[in-house]
């Protein structure tokens, strides 16, 4: 489903060249729940950005659903992001001026669904994350866990092929984090592929496969030493 081969990402300024990803290769099959871990600056977020078509890659190939997406123009990338990928961010990234209903509506409008279809999808996804009674609330009126649930509802409303989660419980207490993880597990069980960038041990355990990234390169499994770091920190 997701197939990256020898992907490199280089950030250049006038004086500095930073290799964020080097010869990065990864295949994720449909229905997998993959966690991506690694130390700070290892390239996790760069991988997430490239996987989510939020950034261009410098070299290599990236296929999504069998289609090479590494050379798409901005409009096509926006469409693929909108139709195939759901994003869950660490800081929820809800739009503060919009209520819950309108927040979930944002990607659906860009998709071009008509109003009744959008309404159906919004209500279903918000009900699914257990916030059916909060549709007219603003994000600021919800707890962190509830806001993350709204973000999940927003990610799921468009029925994407896979979810990209960036530290989805990073801003939550343990109880709320568990509830969000339960929800993600449930979504994965229902068939949605999930790739989750995290440095939390509890999350790594939830994933069926763990990817460790160091110095912009990938290796399957999490080294023991790193697991100890994660447990400690």
């Amino acid at each position: 489903m997701l197939n990256m081969k020898n992907v490199s990402k280089v950030y250049r300024t006038d004086t500095v060249e930073t290799h964020a990803l080097r010869e990065f290769s990864l295949t994720v099959e449909e229905g997998e729940f993959v966690s991506v871990t690694g130390p700070s600056g290892s390239g996790k977020t760069t991988f997430l950005n490239i996987a989510g078509l939020l950034e261009d890659l410098t070299s290599g190939t990236y296929e999504l659903d069998g289609r090479d997406v590494s050379q798409l123009n901005d409009k096509e990338r926006s469409r693929v992001r909108n139709e195939k990928i759901g994003f869950i961010f660490q800081s929820f990234n809800l739009i503060p001026e919009l209520n819950i209903f309108d927040n979930v509506d944002v990607p659906l409008r860009y998709r071009g669904f008509d109003a009744p279809e959008r309404k159906r999808r919004i209500e279903e996804s918000i009900e699914m994350v257990g916030l059916g009674s909060r549709m007219s609330h603003l994000p600021a009126q919800l707890s962190g866990g509830q806001q993350q649930r709204v973000a999940i509802a927003r990610a799921l409303a468009g029925e994407p092929r896979f979810l990209l989660a960036d530290e989805p419980t990073g801003n939550l207490d343990s109880q709320m984090a568990d509830s969000v993880l339960d929800l993600l597990t449930e979504i994965n069980t229902a068939g949605t592929t999930i790739i989750m960038v995290t440095h939390e041990l509890g999350l790594v355990d939830r994933a069926r496969r763990n990817i460790f990234v160091r110095d912009g390169r990938v290796s399957d499994g999490v080294p023991e030493l790193h697991l100890a770091d994660l447990a400690a920190g």
Binding site: K75, S78, F87, N93, V106, R154, G158
Partner: peptide, 16 residues
Amino acid sequence: TRQIGIRRALGATRPA
């Protein structure tokens, strides 16, 4: 700025 980035991430094209 961040909100615009979020909209772009969620599928908004530049013309949108």
